[in-house]
């Protein structure tokens, strides 16, 4: 077994898988995508110059792989007719709640659903910052953005999540009444 693969798997596999899972919200897709991440990593490992940390490099590759996945999902027709905006792309999740989420408390379940209201970029920032616990500086490196852009996107994403949580709560309260 390739030593590099083993090293990366042992140190980062769980983090990368969780990142991809929350991004695509589908276990099977996350499984395929993480394989693609490894392929790209092994093919370009020699070119990794160590300018960023291995961790941020791996996350940036995982992000690129997920963008490619979402891009492939859109038909050409949709792209052109709807002027698809990858930053604003809202990913609607039609899958039932995964087992791991279904057994959590109501707040977690609702917030998981509310992630759908975020754009791909916003969702990425939320996952990297608060589920993966990367710093603003690390997140900026993963996304290739400025720190201020990370902060702005994070602020907007949290705003959207807050508003949608309130909306969902009100909706649930009204259905109970």
């Amino acid at each position: 077994m390739n030593a590099k693969f083993k090293e990366i798997y042992e140190k980062y596999h769980n983090d990368l898988f969780r990142f991809l899972f929350y991004l695509v919200k589908n276990r099977e897709v996350a499984e395929d995508l993480i394989q693609e991440v490894y392929i790209r990593v092994l093919r370009s490992y020699d070119k990794f110059e160590g300018k960023s940390s291995l961790k941020t490099w791996l996350f940036s590759i995982a992000r690129n792989v997920s963008i490619d996945y979402f891009r492939k999902q859109q038909s050409l027709k949709n792209k052109l007719l709807n002027q698809i905006d990858w930053n604003r792309l809202e990913i609607n999740d039609h899958h039932p709640l995964p087992e791991e989420i279904a057994i959590q408390n109501e707040e977690i379940r609702t917030l998981y659903k509310c992630l759908d209201a975020c754009t791909l970029d916003q969702r990425t920032v939320i996952i990297v910052r608060f589920i993966q616990d990367l710093s603003i500086v690390e997140t900026a490196k993963v996304l290739g953005w400025s720190e201020s852009k990370v902060k702005t996107t994070q602020h907007r994403a949290l705003n959207i999540l807050r508003k949608n949580m309130e909306k969902l709560k009100k909706k649930e309260e009204s259905t109970r009444e």
Binding site: N14, F21, E100, Q104, I108, D133
Partner: peptide
Amino acid sequence: HQFPNIDD
């Protein structure tokens, strides 16, 4: 922060 770990 309380979101669960998802294992492969």
